[in-house]
Write a protein that binds this DNA or RNA. Structure first.
Lengths: 338, 338
DNA sequence: CTGTTAGCGCGTTCAC
DNA sequence: GTGAACGCGCTAACAG
């Protein structure tokens, strides 16, 4: 490993001059700067980040908390895509990403000192679905934190948050479904989190705006990215007296599985019953009929989270929750009853 | 941030004594060691890893190269699960994981110095599907590397590799299918990688052992975790003169989509045509009929990769490729023709 | 403009 | 058994 000292010897200057040249300090004349920079380049110099961070107390590294084992861990479609977008942005600005296990957040009082010892510039919580004492500690500390899809509304006022505009997305989807003549729509939600609350609000507002009375039966509690209850929920809905014409699922993964369940009951999606999902996963595009869905822009969510985090690290004040617009993808999986 | 110095003052000893106590050095009497250790604990001391690594030249951190954007990035089921297993093991031994973008591997001659500057103890390649100049450089360097599912066979002799026992898994699956009376089976492979080669070998051996002649038509080139060609491949197979009775896909993700394609052609899986997959993803369990598959033990693959990497970091010699046993899950998606 | 000095927190000599 | 001293690679303060 070649160090700043080696370069200084080679160039006949002092180590600090090399340090300045490498930092592109305005104090040095261009000629010497380029001379030193080129020498460093030639010698294959790469700075020892440990030394820098030991000196400066900060590191070009951010932590990402993911919840391995819960709802598929890294295999969770949406969060994985968000992480893709996040890491692209972070790597572009030459930062690194350190994975932080969810267990870490459960370590108790030493959590903050522990994280500080890692000299992280900031932390991304992916996702806040997993609320905890540890998350609160982290948010309460002076470590910049960005939360994607926070679990509880209260986090919105405590930390920088990024989320899809679930309210509008669901409102638009429901409105379109209603405009196709559906009056008896059932929404199978995910867990009782902020994201779900927003979607339920959007759902109800669309009903209200179209003068369709709401009944409790129209909301069925399901789970995000978990197929274990899909079949039961579908069967329950099919048993309703009023014969619902459309079922909306809180994610495409469950919706795709619902095709399967419905077919096993002899029902054809898009004919006998309509189905819609949420997220916009690849599998939905390959169903027949192709799945109607609200597309979450995961790439933008990730990039926005990254940008927000970097801004915070650079001293920006807490910003308002960033709502990323969703897209609507309407197909024949929702039948036109008109 | 509280340092070793603070503790030394508090305990009335020198910093080096504290350092020794914390390292559990045998030079110190137990009494002083525990006294100091407890003081450190109480004061909420956490060691500054930057300082340690600057001093020792190594860090309790390993890198993970993942290929964001290729075949779903983190959303790739199998690699995500492997990463789950890997990170669980790594975190348990109190190491950290640094994400390394695939772009990094393309940086050219400075790659090794760059990685060394990060002081990584080792690197996991997840996966070797993406072969490259950079990967070769890395393997040729003195940085410990473990490759999961290497792309080319030659890597097996160059680096520590971990993979499922694809040959046996495929052999068993095919044998079982044959024992159910299928003589005309088509295997839709993934890309032309090591993993695929092994599976093709297992497939062919099962045919041979059962005296079923092999024909080129029985192998169709597909793609891993990519639905774009599934429909075309299925249609192609359906057009065969000899009416194949069973199709094996190289991953469950594609197999699940094939259900869809087959149904749109009026065919019922498990009745008119049999289908099997590979991997053992959740979705397959919720299909009707439930999908026959070869289950890859991703958790064990990840943990094995972690253990292998740690061993290498601790000076072990390159070991032989570790083949993780697969499981066979046979269901009515493969019809009994006897 | 540039060199000298000091020190970030820790581990490891080497003395005592 | 323990403390003093040094240095890992880098940067910041202070000189000049």
């Amino acid at each position: 490993m070649i160090t700043i000292k080696d370069i200084s010897r080679k160039c006949g200057v002092s180590p600090s001059t090399v340090s300045r040249a490498l930092a592109d300090s305005p104090l040095l004349p261009k000629t010497t700067k380029t001379r030193i920079q080129r020498a460093a380049e030639e010698m294959g110099y790469v700075k020892n980040e440990m030394a820098t961070s030991l000196k400066t107390g900060v590191r070009r590294t951010v932590g990402v908390v993911n919840f391995v084992g819960q709802n598929l861990g890294f295999a969770h479609y949406l969060f994985s895509e968000i992480l893709n977008g996040f890491s692209t942005y972070i790597n572009d600005i030459d930062y690194d990403i350190l994975l932080i296990s969810d267990k870490t957040l459960q370590m108790g009082e030493n959590l903050i000192p522990y994280l500080k010892s890692k000299q992280l510039g900031g932390v991304l919580i992916l996702s806040g679905y997993y609320d905890s004492q540890g998350l609160r500690q982290l948010i309460g500390s002076d470590i910049p934190v960005v939360v994607v899809d926070p679990r509880e509304e209260i986090l919105l006022s405590m930390a920088d948050c990024v989320s899809s505009d679930n309210f509008s997305g669901m409102y638009e989807l429901t409105s379109e479904i209603i405009s196709k003549g559906h009056k008896n729509v059932v929404f199978v939600t995910g867990e009782d989190y902020y994201v779900t609350h927003e979607r339920v609000k959007g759902f109800k507002k669309a009903l209200a705006d179209n003068a369709i009375p709401f009944s409790d039966q129209m909301i069925v509690r399901g789970n995000f990215y978990n197929l274990s209850a899909v079949a039961d929920n579908v069967l329950k809905i099919l048993s309703y007296d009023n014969n619902p014409t459309c079922i909306i699922f809180s994610d495409d993964y469950c919706a795709v599985n619902a095709y399967e369940v419905l077919r096993s009951k002899g029902l054809t999606v898009g004919q006998d019953i309509s189905v819609a999902g949420f997220d916009g996963i690849e599998m939905g595009k390959h169903m027949s009929p192709r799945l109607t869905t609200v597309v979450q822009d995961a790439e933008t969510m990730g990039a926005t989270a990254a940008k927000t985090l970097v801004d915070r690290m650079n001293g920006a004040e807490k910003s308002d929750t960033k709502l990323i617009p969703t897209g609507l993808f309407l197909t024949e999986s929702v039948k036109d009853l008109n």
